[in-house]
Amino acid sequence: MSIQDKISALMARPGQDPVAKDDVPWWLKFSGRAAGTVGGFLAMALGVSVCISFSAVNIIGGIWQILAGFVLICCEAPCCCLFIDHVQRLADFIDSRPYWNRAAVYVLMSLPPLIFAFGISSFFGSGFIFLTGALYGMMALGKKASAEEMRQAANAENNPVQAGGMRSNLVAHAQPISFSGAPVFDSNV
């Protein structure tokens, strides 16, 4: 058992399976959590600075950014919000969802502050929320194939006669209908 496995076993939640169910690298999981935690605090702090301009549109964008940062903190680092009753249930619900759901929610949450009040504060605050969504999107894509599997897929693609290739036809060397050309009409008839 490696040191990382021992630390993960110590940090596991009660009732959690000791074996991970996905093939996401540990460093990508931790970077998603870290970007979410840092990005949430940064978004809340910079959201306050967006609200200072006293323009109605900027106040709406700043409040949205503050709320988006707070939701991100509640989902990614529920230990920072122990004073709120149902944060742990929200975090457990979010953890049970697929990675692409989290990515979509975080990316969509980051867009309104940029639309309402575009500035350097909203760019960096919402940018970290967007970064967290992008990291979860990368997790949703899954593990990269091995070099041998990629070689086999490339060989199958380059050999159209082989059954199951990406460019295989029913008849080898048959041209699609779109390449046959238009009919030629003779006007002398």
Score class of each variant (00 low, 15 high):
177 I>F: 12
165 G>R: 02
179 F>K: 15
94 I>W: 15
104 A>V: 11
168 S>V: 09
36 G>H: 04
86 H>R: 13
189 V>G: 14
174 A>R: 10
154 A>D: 11
59 I>T: 10
86 H>Y: 08
4 Q>N: 09
80 C>S: 11
99 Y>W: 04
135 L>W: 03
15 G>E: 01
106 Y>F: 15
93 F>R: 08
13 R>C: 05
20 A>V: 07
36 G>P: 03
23 D>I: 00
93 F>E: 07
127 G>H: 02
20 A>I: 03
28 L>I: 05
14 P>H: 05
174 A>T: 10
150 M>N: 09
90 L>H: 07
70 F>K: 01
133 G>D: 00
177 I>Q: 15
13 R>H: 10
56 A>D: 15
107 V>R: 07
123 F>D: 07
157 E>V: 08
32 G>V: 02
13 R>N: 11
107 V>P: 00
12 A>S: 13
95 D>W: 02
57 V>N: 10
27 W>E: 15
62 G>K: 01
168 S>N: 14
181 G>Y: 01
25 P>Q: 03
159 N>G: 00
180 S>G: 10
119 G>T: 00
137 G>R: 03
19 V>I: 12
37 T>Y: 04
71 V>H: 07
32 G>A: 15
59 I>L: 14
132 T>K: 05
124 F>Y: 12
139 M>A: 14
150 M>K: 14
10 L>R: 10
96 S>C: 01
139 M>E: 14
75 C>P: 04
152 Q>A: 13
108 L>I: 15
38 V>E: 07
33 R>L: 15
56 A>M: 13
82 L>D: 11
103 A>R: 05
117 A>G: 05
44 M>V: 12
159 N>S: 10
104 A>T: 08
132 T>M: 07
146 S>A: 04
5 D>P: 01
140 A>F: 02
122 S>Q: 04
113 P>T: 05
165 G>K: 01
82 L>G: 13
39 G>Y: 00
138 M>N: 10
154 A>W: 08
138 M>Q: 11
31 S>N: 11
92 D>M: 09
145 A>T: 06
185 F>W: 12
117 A>Y: 04
38 V>F: 14
131 L>V: 11
109 M>C: 08
114 L>C: 07
119 G>H: 02
142 G>A: 02
52 I>Y: 12
187 S>W: 12
21 K>M: 08
114 L>S: 04
187 S>E: 13
76 E>F: 11
42 L>V: 15
108 L>D: 05
90 L>R: 06
160 P>V: 03
47 G>Y: 01
74 C>Q: 10
48 V>N: 05
122 S>M: 02
51 C>I: 09
18 P>W: 03
100 W>K: 12
90 L>A: 10
185 F>V: 13
29 K>P: 01
128 F>W: 10
71 V>R: 09
94 I>H: 13
27 W>R: 08
168 S>H: 14
3 I>D: 15
43 A>F: 05
122 S>T: 06
143 K>E: 05
66 I>E: 06
153 A>G: 05
54 F>E: 14
177 I>L: 14
86 H>Q: 09
68 A>L: 02
